[in-house]
């Protein structure tokens, strides 16, 4: 039997398929989000890689920003529960999840059973989200994925102190104009985003094991910064971008079994 989880984000789509024994058969991600053919693309790719067809799927759960408008699922569950589920499966003993997505940053607290106990999300402001790093990458004229490598070359600590992305943008531009090294600015951006999200984490209370998910977790420099901010080691979930989709697939199995 096959169970499909689809995570439809604002700027990317992810899918995961598992069997009835919770074996992970495939996880795929594409940088195309809701309102496009992104979800269909990742589902087709996932099916193809497993070598099955759509009608062989026993149950489908959709999650993420686009879950409500996605009509092909049997059930929709929020990304908060799905991230919790996925992490509990991948990292036994996890109690705190930090997820930085494109539009949202969230911190989730799991109880001893691996269920979601509490969660917090960033408010309107973009300063603590992936969007902030995108803005920084744009100013630094590099790709989002290059930020991590760039930041590692940083030799001098600079502070991007502003709470507001728009403010921070002008601050960074003036820093660059004054000859501050790009690498230092990249590291400054990492510090800035992590300090915002660390604030959220402190509000909910941090208990180890701490796990990071989401695309930003692939940025090693951000993860190291976050560890420094919160004072705990961080485990990056394997293939962090697709943890939500995996959680959705696990929910699909669970729901199917209950029926």
């Amino acid at each position: 039997m096959y169970f499909l989880g689809v995570d439809i984000g604002s700027s990317s789509s992810k899918a995961a398929i598992i069997d009835e024994n919770k074996n992970i058969l495939v996880r795929v991600a594409r940088n195309i989000g809701t309102g496009t053919n992104g979800p269909t693309l990742v589902i087709n790719q996932a099916l193809e890689e497993v070598g099955i067809t759509r009608d062989q799927i026993n149950f489908t759960v959709a999650t993420g920003y686009g879950r409500v408008t996605f009509t092909q699922a049997d059930k929709q569950i929020t990304e908060i529960s799905c991230h919790g589920k996925g992490v509990a499966h991948l990292v036994p003993g996890a109690h705190t999840i930090i997820d930085i997505g494109g539009q949202d940053a969230k911190v989730i607290r799991l109880n001893d059973k691996g269920n979601v106990d509490n969660f917090l999300m960033n408010e309107k402001c973009a300063a603590g989200t992936g969007r902030f790093l995108e803005v920084m990458a744009r100013i630094l004229n590099c790709g989002l994925e290059d930020l991590s490598g760039l930041a590692k070359e940083s030799t001098e600590e600079i502070e991007i102190s502003n709470t507001c992305t728009v403010f921070a943008e002008s601050e960074v531009i003036s820093q660059l104009a004054q000859g501050t090294a790009k690498a230092d600015v990249a590291q400054g951006a990492n510090n800035s985003i992590t300090s915002r999200v660390a604030g959220l984490a402190r509000r909910i209370g941090i208990t180890p094991v701490v796990v990071m998910t989401g695309g930003v977790a692939k940025n090693d420099a951000v993860v190291r910064c976050m560890e420094k901010q919160i004072g705990y080691d961080i485990t990056v979930a394997p293939d962090p971008q697709t943890v939500g989709a995996l959680g959705a697939a696990l929910f699909a199995l669970e729901t199917f079994n209950k029926k």
Binding site: S161, F167, S170
Partner: peptide
């Protein structure tokens, strides 16, 4: 709050 001021500005 040191975060709410920009010397440049």
């Amino acid at each position: 709050d040191p975060r709410a001021f920009s010397t440049e500005q």
